[in-house]
């Protein structure tokens, strides 16, 4: 960041020069005492990392991987993948998809660019200049289309959708101050090196676990969030999609949620996992990370959050279209 911009930002910092008191730590501990779950100081037993495998089991895993790579078309396993030491899958619905994975039109195709089109929820809030008027909030969906080459070059197009507002005063404020909402379409040409191209982990569940389930202390929701992130960066071929599905299927805490339909009418298989689950879960409701997969191809259709296992889904990203192409659009 340039020095000038840093200075300007620093000068605009709402917390600049503000003295913060010491707070009240005892109030926090008092509230925690009312928790239903016991927070006794017993430390949870240290678990051996599940990817540290006994040698005999490793041989079994290696064989399974060789079988998968030997198949020319979409990979199929004779039996579901299980990490060594586990007795059952956490999310068998995903293993089922991996077992019967169908090819997409772009599997096996070559092209200079990976093409990805998706929408996500954006928005912002502004403090209204009238005293005590509070915040005006605007929501919009943004569609991003991206062509990305191996060297980080390509093109990015962002189209902002029709705004919505939580209340009348927000609507009025933004309609009176149209200069506050930026242009609705922006195209950015990317030169080589402009984007770091995220490396794809190897197409096997162990590699996916090691690359994506980080940090472990965030619990299984981290695995889902990382898969969503990977899908925002890269286009996965069938081998990688199968590996992701098998990795998630074997991840403790990932739960099958049946079928769901996304905002563009596609029906998929949903999974979720609780956020931030340690060994002493809070009785208060936590959000759940949510993913929706195409039951035929295993492509990720949508990602977002749920309020509870049975609750509403707040979709963050909808993955509309993927491909490989030599042409910028």
């Amino acid at each position: 960041m340039s020095e000038r911009l840093r200075e300007l930002l620093a000068a605009a910092d709402p917390a600049r020069g503000v003295q913060v008191g010491p707070g009240d730590v005892e109030a926090v501990l008092d509230r925690a005492r009312d928790d239903v779950t016991s927070y006794a100081t017993a430390v949870p037993p240290r678990r051996r990392a599940w990817w540290v495998v006994p040698v005999a089991a490793l041989a079994v895993v290696a064989t399974a991987v060789v079988v998968v790579r030997g198949v020319g078309g979409p990979p199929a396993s004779p039996q579901p993948y299980l990490p060594p030491g586990s007795t059952s899958e956490s999310a068998p619905c995903l293993a089922e998809i991996a077992d019967q994975l169908a090819a997409t039109p772009y599997d096996g195709r070559t092209g200079r660019y990976e093409y990805l089109r998706m929408t996500w929820a954006g928005g912002g809030s502004v403090e209204m200049p009238v005293a005590d008027a509070g915040m005006a909030t605007i929501w919009y969906s943004e569609e991003t289309t991206r062509w990305l080459a191996e060297d980080g070059s390509g093109r990015l197009r962002q189209v902002r959708g029709t705004p919505t507002y939580p209340d009348e005063k927000s609507r009025e404020y933004f309609e009176q101050h149209r200069e506050l909402t930026s242009e609705t379409t922006r195209t950015t040409e990317l030169a080589p090196g402009d984007l770091d191209v995220t490396a794809l982990p190897a197409a096997d569940p162990t590699a996916m676990a090691q690359a994506l389930y980080r940090p472990r202390e965030n619990g299984p929701a981290q695995a889902l969030a990382s898969v969503a992130d990977l899908n925002r960066e890269r286009v996965l071929d069938s081998a990688h999609r199968a590996a992701v599905l098998r990795f998630l299927a074997a991840t403790d805490g990932v739960v099958c949620q049946g079928e769901d339909t996304d905002s563009v009418g596609r029906t998929g298989v949903a999974v979720s996992a609780g956020r931030g689950q340690g060994p002493r879960p809070s009785p208060a409701g936590h959000d759940r990370e949510y993913l929706l997969f195409d039951p035929r191809t295993g492509e990720l259709l949508a990602s977002g959050a749920k309020t509870t296992t049975a609750g509403n889904v707040e979709v963050g990203t909808v993955y509309l279209e993927r491909g490989r192409t030599d042409e910028l659009g």
Partner: peptide, 23 residues
């Protein structure tokens, strides 16, 4: 919007930190 809201948020953050202190 203001110090009171910010302090309230901070207390909530630290309550979560206490509950998940192993993480």
């Amino acid at each position: 919007d203001g110090m009171a809201a910010a302090e309230e948020l901070a207390q909530e953050v630290f309550l979560v930190a206490w509950r998940r202190r192993w993480e």
